[in-house]
């Protein structure tokens, strides 16, 4: 293991700090602030215009990596090349779609000397949208009822079961609140054309949305949980501004989730709190949210804690954080030159 004052090289994905941002830049900011040791940050990018690639004060060097659809072998080859040049100590992936590949490669990467701190495939699958309902039932967690359907005729039963409105969801992305059978049918065709079958039909839960950034140690202990309510959202429904909350019920819910799944790594619970004060888990994102720097600002730096655990340190659960911390997201036109664009597009490195 490296000494605490030695240079640590950490590779991070999700450098797309755009209007619907990936978490990478926020993760790096938390690491730089929280680890208090010399860091070299290696960006891993999929597209040539991810802003982080050009932000050299944040990311030291960026390499392009193959899209998740290229598979684990292509990814491993590329990582081996990058590792040969950079000697990566730790890798933190930040996209849902790339996680299965990184999870599969984790043991190989470990043997190469690259640490990571990821959930295993079973945890990952269990919280998948398609399995969420049975997952909730199994662990006594409140989740909306749903039906997985393959044919439009299945909507009829859902209508009788859940009433309207109901939520029509795609396997990977997209969700539409349908107020009538006609709207549900339209949504079924639209979403299945884009994301394929099955379609998930979920009962509509009315309430206030709260998100919780959670870090688990993989042994059932919750290291940190910071609840946040969005104060304002963009037209894409993303957080524009949010505030930390102090609420024991939310923390207990997060703790019971971590205990039930023995969650390893970061995740985000999307909670709907009804007028009757029931807390439904609507969705579980298996990685840090884009607003993760707020956890550091509130006193529980989750990315830094994750890095410490990944490198073998025992990290004690955080106690206490500041409620009422607010983030306000802003955009900034970073300036670069066509040569830099050529460099990353043509050579895959910058």
């Amino acid at each position: 293991m490296k000494l605490p004052d030695e240079l640590l090289t950490i590779a991070v994905t999700g450098l797309n700090a755009i209007d619907s941002p990936g978490p990478g830049i926020a993760v790096i900011r938390s690491l730089r602030e929280g680890l208090q040791r010399p860091l070299r940050i290696i960006g891993l990018a999929y597209e040539t215009l991810e802003p982080g690639i050009y932000m050299h004060e944040v990311v030291d060097k960026t390499y392009q990596i193959p899209y998740p659809a290229a598979g684990t072998q292509a990814l491993l080859n590329r990582l081996a090349y990058i590792h040969g040049k950079e000697k990566i100590d730790l890798l933190i992936p930040n996209f849902d779609a790339e996680l299965p590949n990184f999870m599969k490669l984790a043991p190989v990467l470990q043997s190469m000397g690259i640490a990571s701190f990821l959930p295993d495939t079973d945890m990952f699958e269990a919280r998948d949208k398609v399995n969420l309902y049975s997952f909730g039932k199994q662990h006594d967690l409140l989740v909306p009822r749903d039906r997985i359907i393959h044919q439009v005729s299945g909507l009829h039963e859902c209508g009788e079961l859940f009433g309207y409105p109901l939520v029509v969801k795609g396997k990977f992305y997209d969700a539409v609140v349908a107020y009538t059978a006609e709207q549900a049918e339209k949504a079924f065709y639209k979403i299945s054309a884009k994301w394929g079958l099955p379609i998930i039909v979920q009962e509509f839960i009315n309430g206030t949305e709260v998100n919780i950034a959670v870090l688990g140690d993989g042994k059932g202990n919750m290291i940190s949980a910071i609840p946040m309510r969005k104060l304002y959202i963009t037209d894409k429904g993303k957080a524009w501004s949010g505030i930390t909350l102090q609420d024991d019920k939310l923390l207990e819910l997060a703790a019971s989730f971590v205990k039930a799944t023995r969650w390893k790594g970061g995740c985000e619970l999307e909670i709907m709190r009804t007028a009757k004060d029931e807390c439904y888990i609507m969705e579980i994102n298996p990685r840090f949210p884009a607003w993760i720097y707020l956890t550091a600002a509130a006193g529980q730096n989750q990315p830094a804690a994750l890095a410490r655990m990944a490198l073998g340190e025992v990290v004690k659960p955080f106690t206490g954080y500041e409620a009422g911390k607010i983030f306000v997201r802003y955009s900034w036109d970073h300036i670069t030159d066509v040569n830099a664009f050529h460099q990353i597009s043509g050579q895959g490195e910058l």
């Binding site: 215009l49 990596i65 072998q73 080859n77």
Partner: peptide, 15 residues
Amino acid sequence: KMNGGLMNKFGTRTE
């Protein structure tokens, strides 16, 4: 042509 997103051949050499 070098496009702002899509081009990505790095690491896919196995094929």
